[in-house]
Design a protein around this nucleic acid. Structure first.
Lengths: 143, 143
DNA sequence: TTACTACTTTAGAATCATTCTAATTTTCTT
DNA sequence: AAGAAAATTAGAATGATTCTAAAGTAGTAA
């Protein structure tokens, strides 16, 4: 329902967000939170994030990045998107929203939420509840 | 638009379908076509298909299965679905349709097409054309 | 602060789906 | 039946992700 943080985040804010999520504010988690939870809608892979952390002066083990992304996911701070063939992308936009996918590059583009009126939820199979609903429009570059 | 074959397929029909798609009707491709193009809506991974082919008495190299699935895909005989984390599933239902995804198992269930009225396509980014549009409803088993 | 315990990070090995390679086999055409 | 082109194959290679076990760090209580 809600979920945009439209402003950048300081290390202190990052630590606070982590504590609120019951995650110890370690150096590594703070650095990642600063990068990802600044309110911009982004789609990053673990490897892209690693490169970004290197540039930012906070290199860390890839395993740590995977660990943190999973913990952030469980805490509801990011959301995985599995569309393109290869790597999972982590989406920092927590609002229900939709994606264009460039089928050639795997790149994701958010669809302006104002543009889409979702249909009503179909009847769900018994014993299940809906977690997310997402429209995906696969795009190909015109030749 | 169209695409359901609501009846089983014989080796001869399979060969014919392959020829129509400019694919040589080899033993392996025929065996796969018989399994996949019988009109049932299915979602199979390469490994599941291999197991099925073993049961069917037509074991073949996994590389061949991947090759064939790609060729079938290019020929428009099956469609890949990339939702669950791990393996790509090949969908034998070529009609535009939508999926429930069990987030725990990765299993796909077709959504009854009558249940969904798709919204209008949003404005596409310049230079792109839409290839497919798909709604995904992620489900979690109620506790 | 100190000491303790639980939690984190880490490098590197392991895994799993998928792709590649180079050699062998099969199909199609003559 | 023979030759050329295409397909299949086993096994190696790749790439994303996960696991493991050891070393480091944070929170806590005295």
């Amino acid at each position: 329902m809600t979920g945009n943080h439209p402003k950048p985040i300081s290390p202190e804010e990052a630590a606070e967000t982590l504590r609120a999520a019951s995650l110890r504010p370690t150096r590594q988690r703070i650095a990642i939170a600063e990068r990802l939870l600044d309110g911009r809608a982004r789609h990053v892979s673990a490897e892209q994030l690693r490169d970004e952390l290197v540039d930012y002066g906070q290199p860390m083990a890839l395993a740590t990045i995977y660990n943190c992304l999973h913990q952030f996911e469980e805490a509801g701070l990011v959301r995985p998107v599995h569309h393109a063939g290869d790597a999972v992308l982590y989406d920092t936009n927590l609002c229900d929203h939709h994606h264009f996918v460039d089928v050639e590059t795997g790149e994701l583009i958010d669809i302006d939420p104002g543009e889409i009126i979702l249909p009503e939820l179909p009847d769900l199979p018994d014993g299940f509840e809906a977690e997310t609903i997402e429209l995906t429009v696969r795009l190909r570059r015109k030749s």
